[in-house]
Design a protein around this nucleic acid. Structure first.
Lengths: 157, 157
DNA sequence: GATGAAATACCTCCCGC
DNA sequence: GCGGGAGGTATTTCATC
């Protein structure tokens, strides 16, 4: 994982439709070695998948909700059941176990309040939670799937 | 945007490397009309981009932090300056303006606490904030870039 | 929308440096 | 490690039904 690999990933994280020849130009390589690097990055699992991103508004998914969950069942069985249900509900797109007073943080993408309520009901029916608090998104100011690779003083310190 | 389009998007949101011929098979279409639909979905901006996703652990980005920000400057100039700085910092991957007591919610991806502190300092140096509260992610239980298209009772009601 | 075929472009892997 | 080039394959655009 040298600097050229990071440059390749920086480009591919923004646009993966580019021909390898064009990608090679941008990172200052010729086609073959560039292609080999991309292949290796896939083999090594650095690149996990290649996907299309969609416009939520265009598919009538205009509401994003962050849900904070507190539980009083701090055991493996509960967590397994919880993990299962959140993976089964596609509207729950992200789930994080947190430090601090909130146990879990969920990002939920739905059409409207009714859609959110349906997900909420399915969740609390499937698993016991101590407290649920919902925070609604008014405006998406930034949303990126690209991880930071070059921007900061990573190892310049 | 009929059901076939939704099936195309569901597949492409998970794997955009499939040949059109294979995609066509999965959605029950032949190659040419399937290709035309994909092209139209791109033209119409339903598909916004095609990207690779990377493994954060493999690139030494082991810490995710959610940052809650409260401001006392509720005006356009402040918001523009805030939006500018968060877009400039690649470690700040998502930014949402929220309803309720928290004004903004940020997702920040960094190597470690030091990395987070560096971002934090850059942020508060660039823009005045009233209150900042950081919540650290212990475990990523689910992370998906795929929007829910079929899973729920969208228009079955 | 399906089929088949043709031209183009790209991917893949051989080679030598 | 790099670059060049040949061959196979996928994409893209025609027709036609």
């Amino acid at each position: 994982m040298d600097d050229i690999d990071r440059r390749i990933l920086t480009v591919l994280q923004e646009d993966a439709t580019l021909p390898v020849s064009e990608l090679a130009k941008r990172v200052g390589l010729s086609t073959t070695p560039c292609w080999k690097r991309v292949q290796k990055l896939r083999e090594d699992g650095v690149i996990t998948k290649q996907v299309v991103l969609c416009d939520p508004a265009k598919m009538d998914l205009k509401l994003t909700v962050f849900v904070e969950i507190r539980t009083n069942r701090h055991n493996d069985a509960w967590l397994r059941k919880f993990a299962k249900i959140v993976r089964e509900l596609p509207e729950i797109v992200d789930v994080y176990r947190m430090s601090g007073d909130v146990d879990y943080l969920l990002r939920v993408v739905v059409r409207d309040i009714e859609g959110y309520d349906a997900v909420y009901r399915k969740l609390i029916r499937a698993v016991e939670v101590f407290d649920v608090s919902s925070r609604f998104v008014m405006e998406k100011i930034k949303y990126s799937t690209a991880l930071p690779l070059l921007g900061s003083d990573d190892d310049a310190a």
